[in-house]
């Protein structure tokens, strides 16, 4: 069993529009048997935080192309992308690069 994990999630670049305009969220992921990874986090976000138009954020089991993901201010591509195992107090940022300039 894994202990519950506290995370800070941030949404920027317009992605916050899908979350009632709120940019920063402090969330606690419940304890479960398997360790939490980003893939599961996305599902959790879809079920618990996304207020509308989930297809603008998630495509299949990953983020929509054009959305950047940072884990503790580092590119998620360097951290294993969907397979990165979340740690307590991690900071995950989602920035949309679509629109605006």
């Amino acid at each position: 069993m894994v202990a519950p994990i506290n995370l800070q999630l941030e949404f920027g670049g317009g992605a916050e529009l899908l979350f009632d305009g709120v940019k920063k969220h402090h969330v606690t992921l419940p304890s479960q048997s398997d360790p939490w990874d980003i893939k599961h986090l996305l599902v959790w976000i879809k079920d618990n935080l996304l207020k509308e138009r989930s297809e603008l954020f998630i495509q299949g089991d990953t983020v929509r192309p054009g959305i950047l993901v940072l884990v503790n201010d580092a590119d998620w591509e360097l951290m294993g992308e969907l397979d990165y195992k979340l740690q307590d107090q991690d900071n995950i940022v989602f920035i949309s690069t679509l629109h605006g300039g």
Binding site: R53, I95, H99
Partner: peptide, 20 residues
């Protein structure tokens, strides 16, 4: 986007004609 994030460059999101 990375540069702005890492070096705290502010930006304002303004909805455009084709947002959402």
């Amino acid at each position: 986007s990375f540069y702005n994030r890492l070096f705290n460059v502010p930006s304002v999101f303004i909805p455009a004609l084709d947002t959402k």
